[in-house]
Design a protein around this nucleic acid. Structure first.
Lengths: 117, 117
DNA sequence: CGTGCCTGTCAGAAAAGGCTGACAGGTATC
DNA sequence: GATACCTGTCAGCCTTTTCTGACAGGCACG
């Protein structure tokens, strides 16, 4: 059980993880969700944050594979999206970083790309 | 030798490390410096980046404790700042993140703080 | 003394990220 | 039908980060 991506993550993956976790709010969100899985609105109240904003942070974390959200139907029919943290594990060393750095997708070539279309 | 801050980093420390490493340029800088320590101007040429910009990235990495710079005097008297990577090591797990999240210095309270002074 | 290479910093433009209020849809209860 | 929850998205503002060009100083070589 529990897949752990430990050893050699791809550059883009590590980049998403690090930039996702490198934010005070998102770190606290992970902390809150680790204590108990929760749905968006309740979590927003708990940590005192607007829903749209929390929503944005959550999908940033989810895009990085650090949390997962499941849309569940409560008994009374209400649709609520529960989030919980993934058992992720990354080792952060110079070697790992250097290895990942080689496989970074250049997202910085918006030159003569729009026109080609 | 080589101090490794592995187990339970403070929130602010982890925050600095993650946001420092969560950037494509800075990952490449670490990669380049791991191969061989280098001074600013040469490194700038090597990775094709402006000196002022590289300078900024370097001091961001240094502030996070991931690289160290030493100002050395070459034989011909020129002052050159050599950078090299630190043997850092961080474990990234939900538990570590949650633990760090509790010790985050609220830098976001510029409310009734100026007046108190 | 001009040229070259080193160091650093500064102001200001450009891009990215964070944040808010308003809106739309859904289902259940009074 | 009005209220009260839940979900999501969108335009627009504001702050932070990223990036560039120009400038300062230092030391050595021709």
């Amino acid at each position: 059980m529990a897949e752990v991506p430990s050893p050699a993550p791809t550059g883009d993956e590590l980049l998403k993880v690090l930039s996702a976790l490198g934010n005070p709010h998102r770190m606290r969100i992970v902390a809150a969700l680790l204590e108990s899985r929760n749905y968006v609105s309740a979590l927003a109240r708990e940590i005192g944050m607007g829903r749209p904003l929390l929503h944005m942070h959550l999908q940033r974390l989810e895009a990085a594979g650090l949390v997962v959200g499941t849309l569940e139907l409560a008994e009374d029919g209400k649709a609520m999206k529960y989030f919980e943290v993934t058992p992720f594990f990354y080792e952060l060393t110079p070697h790992v970083v250097a290895r990942a750095a080689m496989t970074i997708t250049e997202t910085a070539d918006r030159t003569a790309k729009e026109e080609a279309k």
